[in-house]
Design a protein around this nucleic acid. Sequence first.
DNA 1: CGGCATAGTGAATCTGATG
DNA 2: CCATCAGATTCACTATGCC
Lengths: 348, 348
Amino acid sequence: MDDCIAAMASLPDACVDMVFADPPYNLQLGGDLFRPEGGRVDAVDNDWDKFDTFAAYDAFTSAWLAEARRILKPSGTLWVIGSYHNIFRVGSRLQDQGFWILNDIVWRKANPMPNFKGTRFTNAHETLIWAAKGEGARYTFNYRAMKSLNDELQMRSDWSFPICGGQERLKRGGTKAHPTQKPEALLYRIMLASTNPGDIVLDPFFGTGTTGAVARRLNRRWIGIERDATYCDVARERIEAALPLDESAITTMQSPKSQPRVAFGTLVETGAIKPGTQVFDTKRRWIATVRADGSLSHAEALGSIHKLGAQLQGAPSCNGWTFWHYDAGGTAKPIDTLRQTYILATEP
Amino acid sequence: MDDCIAAMASLPDACVDMVFADPPYNLQLGGDLFRPEGGRVDAVDNDWDKFDTFAAYDAFTSAWLAEARRILKPSGTLWVIGSYHNIFRVGSRLQDQGFWILNDIVWRKANPMPNFKGTRFTNAHETLIWAAKGEGARYTFNYRAMKSLNDELQMRSDWSFPICGGQERLKRGGTKAHPTQKPEALLYRIMLASTNPGDIVLDPFFGTGTTGAVARRLNRRWIGIERDATYCDVARERIEAALPLDESAITTMQSPKSQPRVAFGTLVETGAIKPGTQVFDTKRRWIATVRADGSLSHAEALGSIHKLGAQLQGAPSCNGWTFWHYDAGGTAKPIDTLRQTYILATEP
DNA sequence: CGGCATAGTGAATCTGATG
DNA sequence: CCATCAGATTCACTATGCC
């Protein structure tokens, strides 16, 4: 239970892998929170007052963003959720601070509250920003896990989830415990996409602890900052009840990138494919010969499986593992098959 | 043909009913990007999208927004479209100038370009901001027309349209006449929602004149500002050919209602089925385990509900929804039951 | 003329490890 | 810092051409 800026300030540099933030955006509520030190302008004019309010909100935003950026590891990422009231201000400030936006994500609400007066479009979505610590920074994106979640199609930037209600909605004395409780499904996808098991996730506006509950289920570590004691109580109770998922269920589809790398030369050395063997592309436009050092030759041309494939096609690059095939008892198989067999045989 | 700020400056105060702006996005692209099959992506590399710094982009944004606000009637509204590269900066500046945001609208693209390298989520939407001239200003919103367009349900803030292609995409010498032509359906909905017949619509970044063509069809007057002479030529030709639509054509402008597609992963995320749950076929020949990313595992085999079902049976394909079952209090039910329940619970 | 295979394309901040 | 190289990576839709 603490003010989020002060609490983050007490943490060391570069200590967390991900920050998820659901900052307040009701400009009236807790107005004094957003006042910059001594900057109160005694205004009567509405426009001036509004400017003052934006300036105060911006100062608050910049302050917590700066702390969040400081405590993020170089490879860490930031997630912020908001609506049109505040998201443009937040997005602009985080760009100013050097954060590098990776995606903006739209959460489409399956069952939003209607616009009762019929004066605008039904507000049926909220916006999330996903940002790395800076341009060119490395970051975690579990591409294969996301693709798997979406029936083997790339996960898009628009996500559909119902709003938080029913059993999931936490109550206190018959009424909702928190006005803007986020669905666990949203945090589930966020953490599965951009963190690994054991990573540390920090939420500076913890509320009733959705971030903590999902982190526990997915075997991530978490830090929650919340200054309202009642919310803290609700969160504690809830997270204790959240059961971690079994290790085997948490493992996700891995990208080939994270598999051990095997050189084609190793397959030649171990006898999986013999020097002198002929390899070819699917349409048999080119036939090349495997050499003792793991290179391929075709007429005068010579190079690695990738380089030769690219050169012959006149392409900028080529994945030799899937381009070149060998004859396996009458049927053509990509040489990648040999690599997979080798990996399976040598894995402990 | 003119610079947009100078051209707007030559107009009197409060003379237009609506401004639609599709400003440069400031994409900040790096080097060439190649597709997996080898082709090169034809990127937006035009000079008009190049800005040295955020500060330069912001100054440009504030300048054209100020002119747009000046020439708007008190009851007029502004529409701006952008992506995460620029929309937060634009939104923040327009709020600073006193514009009052009415909605942010998400254009969900039915057929976006994929993320070829698998490094981020597929960028599948763009964002529009709809704003009145100030807080409390009167404005036009044709609530009934929008509700009617949407099968008698309130129009939501997320709109689905295909990107502009096919016959609609304007060509010049065999290639696209403009790199970022917007679909007419988008402008159609915007004008139908927020203007009346005879109103004046101004577009400071006219391009190939989508705004003008739709305005003519809907019997609105228009002003287009464009400094590129070639774009102007294309626009003139196009608008001359644009004929007012009859009723039957209007109904075809609506996007076809797409069948709700639910990924198995969504059921895992929303807790409808938990990671670690065991699923099996009717004859219980195979038992598989649900994993956190919505894939199934069975011994060494691993894949989507469809892929794994096909693989185990040695079949070319398999409908995993009806093949796999779960234990529902003693009786086996196909996992499709869960999907149907989810659709019923979340469809508006 | 239809069906099917192949090719092309769209506002994109699009690799990572090693030397 | 840069250069080099292994090797991973795509969805929906339109247009064209062949049979």
